[in-house]
């Protein structure tokens, strides 16, 4: 029972040994060291400015290509790339940044290399995306350089997002004219349709009815005028007296192959929303459309068509 030491001495010894152990681990494991520094507040939390090159250009790339495996869901290699602080903390082996750092090295490896990122045949970063990351790393991987000041950056290409729709909103927008539309769709089957499932706007394709469609039919559609945005009257029997100016929402109007003349111009002038007009094969003289042209309306088929 000799060699006993006091409890205090033992506690001190344990503290010392544990401390040395942690110090050794920090020295051997930069990732662990970074965590300890951040947890203990030895290192200030890093935050990137909202308009910084990092936030605007780099972070979306990490989100899209990396954060699935290096983020909240999983942190492979103990690396997370879903926040500026985490990016700076690095992974199991510490810092991944730097111009020749692990991050850039791994994302530029040939896809056949088993260490290449993203792995498993996931699409590699494009040349432009790599350029963005290279520029950011070369500038010290900072979070305070405004995006606008990085001149050599490739043009920003935003991924296409599928428009999401809210069926209740659409139904609400459609409700005021729904009964009228149902009635007219029965009378003109196949001619009137919503522009899309997400829209209350209508397109009317009277071309399908041909010569059976005339001024009176256009008049009949006027209750829907607030919602008709595209109107194709090609080859119909509409005349210069057609109630066109009542169609105040129409942006695209096709009159090809109708018997209309310059006399229809005032009615067209009244169509405030008009942006694109097609008059191929009509007798509408170019000069009668001068007003529309001044308004910036695109006009197809004036005078000679094609060539």
């Amino acid at each position: 029972m000799t060699g006993r030491i006091s409890a205090w001495a033992y506690a001190a010894g344990v503290l010392l040994v544990t401390g040395c152990g942690i110090a050794a681990a920090m020295a051997l494991r930069p990732g662990f060291a970074a965590t300890v520094r951040q947890v203990t507040g030895l290192e200030p939390a890093r935050i990137a400015a909202p308009d910084s090159f990092y936030t605007v250009r780099v972070a979306p790339l990490f989100d899209r290509h990396c954060a699935g495996c290096h983020g909240a869901r999983a942190a492979k290699g103990q690396l997370r790339l879903d926040s500026f602080a985490a990016v700076w903390r690095g992974g199991r082996h510490g810092d991944v940044l730097g111009k020749d750092g692990e991050l850039y090295r791994r994302i530029t490896l040939p896809q056949s290399d088993e260490k290449a990122m993203p792995p498993d045949g996931k699409p590699p970063l494009s040349k432009d995306e790599l350029t963005v990351i290279r520029l950011w790393l070369a500038d010290g991987a900072r979070g305070d350089v405004p995006a606008a000041t990085v001149k050599d950056a490739p043009r920003l290409v935003l991924p296409v997002t599928i428009p999401q729709m809210n069926p209740q909103d659409v139904a609400r927008q459609r409700a005021p004219l729904a009964d009228e539309l149902a009635r007219l769709q029965k009378r003109y089957p196949g001619l009137i349709a919503y522009e899309s499932l997400a829209s209350a706007d209508l397109q009317v394709n009277a071309m399908l009815a041909g010569k059976r469609f005339g001024d009176a039919d256009l008049q009949a559609l006027l209750p829907l005028a607030a919602r008709i945005v595209r109107l194709d009257l090609s080859g119909t029997a509409v005349t210069d007296a057609a109630p066109l100016s009542g169609l105040r929402a129409v942006t695209h109007l096709r009159l090809a192959g109708t018997g209309l003349t310059g006399a229809v111009a005032p009615a067209l002038d009244g169509m405030a929303a008009l942006k694109v007009l097609t008059v191929t094969g009509t007798n509408i003289a170019p000069e009668s459309l001068a007003g529309l042209r001044r308004r910036g309306v695109t006009i197809h088929g004036e005078g000679d068509d094609g060539a």
Binding site: M1, T2, G3, R4, I5, S6, A7, Y10, G13, V14, T18
Partner: peptide, 16 residues
């Protein structure tokens, strides 16, 4: 494991 080793060490060095 740390706790385990520290405890065993305590028995060995302090309590004999």
């Amino acid at each position: 494991v740390w706790l385990h080793v520290v405890a065993v060490g305590f028995y060995l060095l302090v309590k004999g």
